[in-house]
Simulated assay, not measured.
Amino acid sequence: MNELLQNHLFATHAIAASASVTLATALTYPLDTIKTLIQVGSGPSKQLTATQLLNRVQNLSGNSGLYSGLGWLTYGRILGLGSRFGVYEILSAFYKDGREDNYVYVSEAFMAGMAAGVAESLLSSPFEILKVRSQVNSASRVTSTTPITEKRIVAPVVTRLLHGYTPDMKALNHSDGLLSILNAKHPNMIGALQEYPWMMTGSGRLPSVCDVRKASDIISLEGWGALWRGLRSGIARDSVFCGIFFSSWQFLHQAMLNWKAVGMDPPPRSDEEIGPLSPLAVSVAAGVSGTLAAAASHSFDTAKSRSECAVLPKFISMERRLLKWKVPGKRFEKLTGIHPADRNLLYRGIWVRTARSGLASFLIVGSYFLAIDHFVSY
């Protein structure tokens, strides 16, 4: 009987957590879309505003474009937040073991949070790249210059790497014209050019990120490793975020407990004697902690978002490994996955992300407590 009740209690908490994450993600997702577009669309001399991007998405994709990739982020959030809080609870239980007051110090919460962030990044990264590319596609106008009669002629290499993609035949004909000055002319130069992966667009440029946004296309063209593109910056972002989130949340939680204990007679000897805080107070503390954590980790989030929008086919990755290509940048940039060209762009969209993170943290914790109270009452 006790085992049945424990299983029921675990299922109740799992359902409540999943529902709260889904609700918070859906309500704050438009802010995440605007944040991502600001990060990947801005340049050193071009700074996009939230109003400009909002109008662009609505003109190209309608209001539904603000929710492009919502499903991928929801799946990633459920797994990522589950691992975040799960790892943190395990490590914090290890810290509290043997202590009478059942207390976790702020420094211990920070270290446990950093470890939890690493686990979250590893699980949520494949979903995040699909989410980011769906968001970019909602604000991109893709036009094809290939005549309809020529779309039937597709090189075998293109069909293997990108299903349903058609190269630009006009650019291929132009490339063939540039090579026509050679003495020994190939009998089928256009067909030969199409056999090279780097000529898929007809101009030697890589395919647009809008053409490589599906999971099957990413795996086929860029390989399985592309699903963890920007892993270094992702680990740095999530470890810093979770470390600051849990340490600041622990600090605020303890401060509110001390405030509640003022005037109690007799003075409480432990936190258990003070009693639990109200769900609203805990939710506000989570919202403030989420805002601080987002501000501290935003530069790594920008680096990850920009790296996920770079199409890097498998043959280029292989060439870099064979040529022992060195990653550009300083030692800290190499360690955290920041590209030197993005140094002046790392804080683009920081206000949107801090607002979204604070609101999402408040909604997740608040709706979780409401759901638990609702289920327990029944």
Rank of each mutant, 00 (worst) to 15 (best):
N2R: 10
N2W: 05
H8N: 07
A17R: 01
S20W: 08
A24C: 10
L27K: 09
I34P: 00
I38G: 03
A50Q: 11
T51W: 03
Q52G: 01
R56E: 14
L66H: 06
L66M: 14
G69E: 06
G71P: 01
W72F: 14
T74C: 13
G76V: 07
R77L: 00
G86Q: 10
V87A: 08
S92H: 05
E100N: 03
A109E: 03
F110P: 02
A115M: 15
G117F: 10
G117M: 11
E120L: 06
S121Y: 01
S134Y: 03
S134G: 11
S138N: 06
A139V: 10
R141H: 10
T145L: 11
T146A: 06
E150F: 09
A155T: 07
V157F: 02
P167S: 11
K170W: 02
A171H: 08
I181T: 11
L182P: 01
P187I: 11
M189D: 12
I190F: 04
L193A: 00
L193K: 04
Q194M: 15
P197H: 03
G202R: 06
P207K: 05
D217K: 11
D217T: 08
I218V: 14
I219M: 06
W228N: 03
L231K: 03
A236H: 01
V240D: 01
I244K: 02
M256F: 13
L257S: 08
N258G: 08
K260S: 15
P266C: 03
E272S: 10
P276V: 12
L277S: 04
S278L: 10
V282T: 11
V284L: 10
V288G: 04
T291N: 06
A296N: 06
A296C: 14
H298D: 02
A303M: 06
S305T: 03
S307P: 02
S307I: 02
V311C: 05
V311F: 06
R321M: 12
R321G: 09
V327G: 05
P328E: 07
G329P: 02
G337H: 01
A341C: 08
I350C: 09
W351G: 05
A355R: 06
S361K: 04
V365M: 10
D373M: 12
